[in-house]
Simulated assay, not measured.
Amino acid sequence: MLARALEPVRDRSGTQVSVAVLEPRNGRRAVYGSQEHITASLAKVNILAALLLRAQREERSLTLWETSAAAEMIRSSDNDAANALWRRIGGGEGLTEANRILGLTSTQAGPGAHWGLTRTTAADQLALLSAVFAGPSPLSEDSRRLIQTLMGQIDADQDWGVSAAGTRWQLKNGWLQRRVSQRWAINSMGRVRAHGHTFYLVVLTHGSRSMSHGISTVERAAESAVHALRGTPLPVAPIIP
């Protein structure tokens, strides 16, 4: 079902695409693509979840500085804030420890300071979304509420990706141009409200020849995934070249 819906997207874009979608109300779930993708700034949600788990373990709230850095990292995708919080959680080791608790089994933390080179699968990021938006979860209710709030306050210039599939959304995007190939990794994940239903949605891509092409591919894949899970046809729309 999902593979058939995404076939036109894959064929027309020439981009490697992985998608995971869940309708939490009834548990309907579909995953397309098991390959690993680099997260780019998508890792920032994972970093914040790791920070909150650390604070929970220490039986404390986030400090004012941590709260401010988290807001900058998620709302504006600020890399300096992410660098600082990456160090605060203990880098890759801290992320790996948190992911064991969160149930992410196919995510490999980026080397050294390179959190954006963390590798993951669509299924793992769907597991992370479920931990953020639904209970029971290793994240406390207050921790989940903070992440949800920040993902609903993304800067206006970053309102793209899975938001194309719905009218209400909470999301985080990631984008990175690879140095050698000059191709783009474009990712998006979040909770969207579409056609009166709620969906958790992840789209990971790599190999796009431009950022705009990658965004168009992600948005088309997001719309296709929601329609596939609902069993409704998707209106024909082009992918930006």
Score class of each variant (00 low, 15 high):
I47L: 04
L62A: 05
A69L: 15
L51I: 09
L51G: 06
W86M: 00
L85A: 13
G103N: 10
R87G: 08
V45H: 01
A69V: 13
R87Q: 15
A70Y: 04
A98N: 08
S106K: 13
M73L: 13
M73K: 12
E72W: 13
R60L: 02
V45L: 06
A71V: 01
N79S: 10
S76D: 14
I101C: 04
L48K: 03
Q56D: 14
L51W: 02
R100M: 14
L85I: 15
A49N: 07
T96L: 10
L95W: 07
G103M: 12
N83L: 05
L62S: 01
A82Y: 00
I74E: 04
A84T: 11
I89P: 11
L64H: 03
T67G: 05
R88N: 11
G90K: 03
A98T: 09
S61W: 10
L51E: 11
V45Y: 07
D80A: 13
E72N: 14
L104Q: 08
I38E: 05
I101P: 02
E59I: 09
T107M: 10
I74R: 05
A50P: 04
I89K: 00
L51A: 13
I74K: 06
L85P: 14
K44I: 08
E58W: 05
N99S: 09
A81C: 12
G92R: 02
S77L: 02
L104G: 06
Q56L: 06
Q56S: 13
Q56H: 03
W86P: 01
L52T: 09
R75M: 14
G103R: 12
T39M: 11
G91K: 02
T96G: 10
T67I: 08
S68D: 09
V45N: 06
E66V: 03
A71E: 10
A43E: 01
I38N: 04
I101N: 00
L102G: 09
S77D: 05
T39K: 01
R87D: 15
L53N: 09
Q56F: 07
A71Y: 03
L51S: 09
G92K: 01
R100I: 13
A50E: 07
A43V: 12
N46T: 12
S61G: 09
S76T: 13
L85S: 14
R54C: 01
I38G: 06
A82D: 02
E97A: 12
